[in-house]
C-alpha cells in the first residue's frame, strides 16, 4: 500500500534533468519523446532525429503539417532556426562517430551489466531494430526510460536479458517508474526513488544485482 510510481510524464521530466547545455540528444519513440517537453530553462540542447535532421522543433500547428518533414517516429514536426537536414548515412555517421552526447530510449529488458533488449520477441513480435542497435553501440551516454515491471508484475531489470539483445554493456542509467538507477560494476545502483515508493519495494521488484546509494534520496517534482 502507499505505492506511488511515476507516470510517463514524470519519468520524462526526471530524465530531462540529465540534459546539459550544448548537448546533442537523440530521443527514441515513446516516453523518450516526452523528454523534449521538460528541457530545463537555460539549457539549450539540439535534438537529432536519425532520419536526417539536427534541430528538431515542436509539432506543427494544425494545417501546417508537411509530409516531407517528419521525425524518426514518423510524426510531423517542424524545424528551428539553425536546423539542418542530411541523409541517413551521414546521420548514422555522426552517431557512430560519437558526436551525439546523449541517447534516451525505451527497453523491454535491461541487465545489471548494461545489456539492453528492445527489438524482438521471438515468434511474436518482429518489427525490427530500426536505429536502436546503431545508437546503443556508439553513444557515450545512454539512458533507458522504462516501466520497472511487466504486466505480470515481473522485474524488467534482470541479472541477464532473456530476449534477443540490442546491445551489450552499453547503458549507463535507467529511469523507471520506481526510481533512478546507475549501471555500475556492482549492478544497478539506486540513487533516487519515486515519491511514496520504498526501498523495500524497489528491492522486491529488481531481479538483477542491486545496491542502494548511501546518499539515496526521494525524487522531487
Amino acid at each position: 500500500m502507499g505505492y506511488m510510481a511515476l507516470n510517463k510524464e514524470q519519468i520524462a521530466q526526471r530524465i530531462a534533468r540529465e540534459l546539459k547545455d550544448g548537448y546533442y540528444v537523440n530521443l527514441g519513440i515513446g516516453i523518450p519523446t516526452l523528454v523534449a517537453n521538460y528541457i530545463p530553462e537555460g539549457v539549450n540542447v539540439i535534438l537529432q532525429s536519425e532520419n536526417g535532421l539536427l534541430g528538431m522543433g515542436p509539432f506543427p500547428f494544425e494545417g501546417e503539417e508537411d509530409p516531407d518533414l517528419i521525425n524518426a517516429g514518423k510524426q510531423t514536426i517542424t524545424t528551428l532556426p539553425g536546423s539542418v537536414f542530411f541523409d541517413s548515412a551521414m546521420s548514422f555517421g555522426m552517431i557512430r562517430a560519437g558526436k551525439v552526447d546523449l541517447t534516451v530510449l525505451g527497453a523491454m529488458e535491461v541487465a545489471d551489466n548494461g545489456d539492453i533488449a528492445n527489438w524482438k520477441i521471438p515468434g511474436k513480435m518482429v518489427k525490427g531494430m530500426g536505429g536502436a542497435m546503431d545508437l546503443v553501440a556508439a553513444a557515450k551516454n545512454i539512458i533507458v526510460a522504462m516501466q520497472h515491471t511487466n504486466r505480470a508484475g515481473e522485474s524488467k531489470l534482470l541479472p541477464e536479458c532473456t530476449l534477443p539483445l540490442t546491445g551489450v554493456r552499453c547503458i549507463t542509467k535507467v529511469v523507471s517508474d520506481l526510481g533512478v538507477f546507475d549501471v555500475t560494476e556492482d549492478g544497478f545502483r539506486c540513487i533516487e526513488y519515486a515519491p511514496g515508493v520504498t526501498i523495500e519495494e524497489i528491492k522486491a521488484k529488481t531481479a538483477g544485482r542491486l545496491t542502494i546509494a548511501d546518499d539515496v534520496k526521494e525524487m522531487t517534482f
Binding site: 541523409d87 548514422f92 518482429v126 536505429g131 536502436a132 546503431d134
Partner: peptide, 18 residues
C-alpha cells in the same frame, strides 16, 4: 513473415544506410 511466405533480413538502420 510469421507464416513463412516472406523472408526478411532485419538490418540495423545505420548499417543499412552504410
Amino acid at each position: 513473415l510469421l507464416s513463412g511466405e516472406l523472408e526478411v533480413d532485419l538490418v540495423p538502420q545505420g548499417t543499412l544506410a552504410t
